[in-house]
């Protein structure tokens, strides 16, 4: 067990209709770390983040953040949904989207203050998107859309960041930019929970891993859980060894999805 965990899940089960998306998942996560959540498509990664944020309702079991009721600590959590969760053809500008990150602190019925506007601009600056603030979101590339989502989460100014596939569909330079931003955030004491697909980079990006396949396969420090046995259990028989994974990755395109 981890002392003073930031997130814990106890016997967490989420059903959609009769179909389980998560089955009896138990783990706790340490503070101040970069934590990866990995597993094949449909393994319940997004559902896990949604359950933590109260967006999906557990059928049984529960999650806790900072050992409190969710409503007491919501303001400390920033959330980046999966990019294809929303309609990017919506008539909204980059600025409109990022300013939503301030609605929680300011409430829905007060005007955003100049302090809010500074925070929004700063968040956009951090992801190199300030120059695009008037742009309609449909006119952004996938990587730019991802950065807008990140900026909105930054504008929430949480201590805990839950990010659903922030690297999906971004090119290498954007990925590097995001990674250095994440390092900065970690150094500032933030805890980052990141849904990720690329096994190549898992070891270098994360301190801690949660491997899911509807059930929890393993959770722990990367050095302990990133091994052949666990990866086989997570991804099934198709990938048998880490070396074979790298080979397969070179041969066929890995599921980085576009729009």
């Amino acid at each position: 067990m981890i002392e003073n965990p930031i997130i814990e899940a106890h016997n967490l089960t989420v059903l959609y209709g009769r179909k389980p998306a998560l089955w009896n998942v138990d783990f706790s996560l340490p503070r101040g770390k970069v934590i990866g959540i990995m597993g094949p498509n449909g393994s319940g990664k997004s559902t896990l983040l949604k359950a933590i944020m109260g967006v999906a309702t557990p059928t049984s079991g529960y999650t806790k953040v900072y050992d409190r009721e969710l409503d007491e600590v919501r303001e400390k959590i920033s959330y980046v949904p999966q990019r294809q969760d929303i309609d990017w053809d919506f008539p909204a500008s980059v600025w409109d989207v990022v300013s939503m990150g301030r609605f929680q602190k300011r409430g829905l019925f007060k005007k955003l203050t100049s302090e809010d506007k500074d925070i929004i601009a700063e968040s956009l600056e951090k992801v190199n998107m300030l120059g695009y603030s008037k742009r309609q979101i449909s006119q952004l590339s996938g990587g730019q859309q991802q950065r807008v989502f990140l900026a909105r989460a930054l504008a929430q100014q949480g201590d805990l960041f839950l990010m659903d596939e922030p690297f999906a569909g971004v090119d290498i330079s954007t990925e590097e930019m995001i990674i250095s931003l994440l390092k900065e955030m970690k150094d500032a004491g933030k805890t980052l929970v990141i849904v990720h697909h690329d096994l190549h980079t898992a070891q270098s990006y994360f301190d801690w891993l949660v491997l899911l396949n509807t059930r929890l396969v393993a959770a722990g420090p990367v050095s302990e859980v990133f091994n052949d046995q666990v990866l086989t259990d997570t991804y099934g028989g198709k990938l048998t060894t880490i070396s074979k994974i790298s080979q397969e990755l070179e041969n066929k395109e890995f599921p980085i999805r576009h729009k």
């Binding site: 967006v55 409503d71 919501r74 929680q104």
Partner: peptide
């Protein structure tokens, strides 16, 4: 006019809105 922000955010991104407690 009164409910613009609430209507807007829950139309644009209901999951995110829920996550912030709206």
């Amino acid at each position: 006019v009164w409910g613009y922000k609430g209507l807007f955010i829950t139309t644009f991104d209901p999951n995110f809105a829920l996550s912030t407690g709206i």
